[in-house]
Computed example of a mutant assay.
Amino acid sequence: MSTSIPVVEQLPTLPTEEVLSAVRSAFAELAAGTAVQPAQTVTLLPGGGDVIAYQAATSDAYAAKVSPYLPQPDGPAIVTAWTVVLSTRTGRPVVLCDSAALTVERTAATTALAVDLLARSDASTLAVIGAGPQAHAHLRYARAVRSFTDVRIYSRSLREAPDGTTLAASADEAAAGADVVLLCTSAAEAVIDVTALSPGTLVTSISTNVPKAHEIAPTELPKLEVYGDYRPTVTASAGELVIAAEQGIWSPEQLRGDLPELLTGTCERPSGERPVFFRSIGLGIEDLAIARLLVPST
């Protein structure tokens, strides 16, 4: 019997609907109590750098994504990510994959799930802030859950709008009048003025792993209806939520709901009276959802 496991060094093209279904099912498993989502852990390395580990488990599989950040004395830091999936029936690894592209896909699909659950059903105007791989993936997945007819995009580095979009002169110009605003930047501070948004507008944020990084001003949280990807982890790690809690202007108890609760109807939906803010930090259950799609059929 072969002891080798499939190694996926380049993520194959996965159907958008298949990825969305996998992510939705993963959060439904969390809601049903048939999946486990620990908090991410950070291990500081001797001499500098760190490794972030994202874990998750379902009834038949366990996954761990490890993402090292390795500073180099003569150039940019090395940043990689690998996900391994183990069968919880046999204890054997069933797939190992490079998670660079996987992370982009699962992050954008999770945001799209939030758009599907939180945005108005007739949402037609979309703003995308950013122009990297995450921004492009977010645009693709968001279009799969709503029929956007007006798409604006803004990035300081962008000189030409992608097909089917309009290039805005600023982030706030792109967001003005939008039904959904997708923040896809590596900024460590606010990139739009959420106080200028209309009630019911949905803003999503992924931010970065930099401690306390945020894409909206923490002081504005009390004016928003705030949701997260998973209540136990997002309130402890998301930069603007942590800062606002430390300042005493917002508390984790004010989080209106998370994706498992939204899927099961156990939390309040947006009221339409204030802008809506959805924050995700990235979860092992999302990595597991996509990695399971790569496991060879038996």
Rank of each mutant, 00 (worst) to 15 (best):
M1K: 13
S4A: 15
V19K: 04
L20V: 14
A22M: 08
R24L: 07
A28V: 10
L30V: 06
V36R: 15
P38L: 05
P38H: 02
Q40V: 09
T41Y: 04
T43C: 11
P46N: 04
P46E: 07
A53C: 15
Y54T: 15
Q55C: 13
A56G: 06
A57T: 12
Y62C: 02
P71D: 05
P71L: 13
Q72R: 15
P76T: 13
V79G: 01
W82K: 08
E105D: 05
T110Q: 09
T110P: 03
L113M: 13
L117E: 10
L126Q: 09
L126I: 13
H138I: 04
L139E: 08
V151G: 02
I153F: 01
Y154L: 05
R156H: 03
P162A: 09
P162N: 04
A168S: 12
S170P: 01
A174Y: 00
A174G: 07
G177K: 09
D179H: 11
L183F: 03
C184H: 06
C184L: 05
T185C: 03
S198N: 10
G200D: 03
V203M: 08
S205V: 00
S205G: 00
I206H: 08
V210Y: 01
V210I: 12
A217P: 07
P218V: 04
T219G: 15
P222R: 09
P222W: 00
V226E: 02
D229F: 05
T233S: 15
I243T: 07
I249N: 04
L255P: 03
P260D: 04
C267A: 08
E268T: 14
R269M: 05
P270R: 01
S271F: 05
S271C: 00
G272R: 03
E273T: 13
P275G: 11
V276K: 01
F278Y: 09
G282T: 10
A289G: 03
